[in-house]
Design a protein around this nucleic acid. Structure first.
Lengths: 224, 224
DNA sequence: ACCTGAACACCGTTCAAGT
DNA sequence: ACCTGAACACCGTTCAAGT
């Protein structure tokens, strides 16, 4: 008590951008996007602000790098030597699942869509569409449309996942509530939504996503 | 100076949720999403925090209501008595343009995709697809896919718009830089992206968006 | 009922100072 | 070079007090 306040001794094990990204990813995955603050990052890493800012530019940098990381893992993990149609579906599903598992990635990709992560996605999808014999003049638009569809759905899905926080029970309750709301709408004013209420309750997000990919591929096939 | 500090007299003209949303929309449109703070909202409306919180639940509420407002305007503005294919394209383009003009709407829709605004979109698109004779069993998936595509692209576009802040000059500089980057990539590792660099520089976002809608509609036509 | 504005509990980021 | 942690300039939100 009478002793002079002691500075905590400086860390001996090296901090690094990788270790920061790793810790940030863990926080994001377990506690969500709002839980990632510089403060919890410093305590988690037993360090100070300056140490973190010495390795990364700012908080955006951390989020962007963590996102690149997740996407890069998907891109290297997906098998590409399947027939192009199969490979395209597998790639789309891989991205969907990754964003479902890390909802913050979805938000990040729609916030900064020019990052290296997206380059890999464009390259893979473009190449696979080329293998599907999409005419060259249509390749750019087709790839753009497909990438946007995949990221768009994944992003929406992620938003729902974030909103529901955790738990499959929540999801069915949420869908049942929404479906009940839809079915109570005036069938004259909202014929489609009213009719679709049942499907809203029963649908599987992953299957619906794939159905959309198939519609897309069918449309692309007509470009031949 | 010796006088007692005087409270500013209370406002006489009524505050209302509408007036708050209106002011918020102006701030969002002119200065971007980050510029909307409760503080600037109070000064803009010559009022205090409590007055605002008396009319809205919180900041999210303001953003959500402002978004509903913008989308509702698009939905009532679009002509639906055109042939379904034309109407569908017009609707998609209307949404694209609205989100381009109000980029914060794009971010908001992917953050809270269950709002009333989205219900109207689903209803219109579902009904138009029905008019296109999409079989009933495929209607729900097709509508979901199309809505997600439209919002996905619009959202990405909005992200770019936000990143570029303002000005057409910025956009072409940005695209030229990105295209230069793409074209410098190793053609062996990135054949598609390397080849697509030219189109990246020259493409028109709106046209590419419509090309995607057409691919979609072509795919949907195969469901018949 | 409607409004004012001080106060609270947070943020991300900086930077002088330590090793 | 790498790290510490107090301090700064912000946030959104609450709430006692006014009319």
């Amino acid at each position: 008590m009478a002793a002079k306040a002691q500075r905590t001794p400086r860390r001996t094990d090296a901090l690094s951008k990788e270790r920061i990204i790793e810790a940030a990813t863990e926080i994001l995955d377990t506690d969500g996007e709002n839980a990632l603050t510089l403060r919890v990052l410093t305590t988690r890493l037993n360090t100070g602000y300056g140490a973190i800012y010495h390795h990364v530019a700012n908080k955006s940098d951390v989020l962007a790098a963590a996102t690149d990381e997740v996407i890069a893992r998907v891109m290297t993990g997906v098998v590409i030597d399947a027939p192009p149609r199969e490979a395209l579906r597998a790639l789309a599903l891989g991205l969907f699942d990754a964003i479902d598992a890390h909802p913050w990635v979805g938000a990040q990709l729609s916030r900064e869509p020019w990052r290296p992560a997206l380059l890999e996605i464009y390259e893979s999808i473009g190449r696979l569409l080329d293998a599907l014999h999409v005419p060259e003049r249509a390749l750019f638009d087709a790839a753009g449309a497909l990438v946007n569809y995949v990221l768009g759905v994944a992003g929406q899905n992620a938003a729902n996942a974030r909103a529901l926080a955790h738990g499959e029970a929540d999801r069915s309750v949420f869908l049942a509530t929404a479906a009940a709301h839809w079915s109570q709408l005036d069938p004259d004013k909202y014929p489609f939504v009213h009719k679709a209420a049942t499907q809203l309750r029963e649908h599987d997000d992953r299957e619906q996503f794939l159905a959309g990919v198939d519609i897309f591929l069918a449309g692309i096939a007509t470009l031949r």
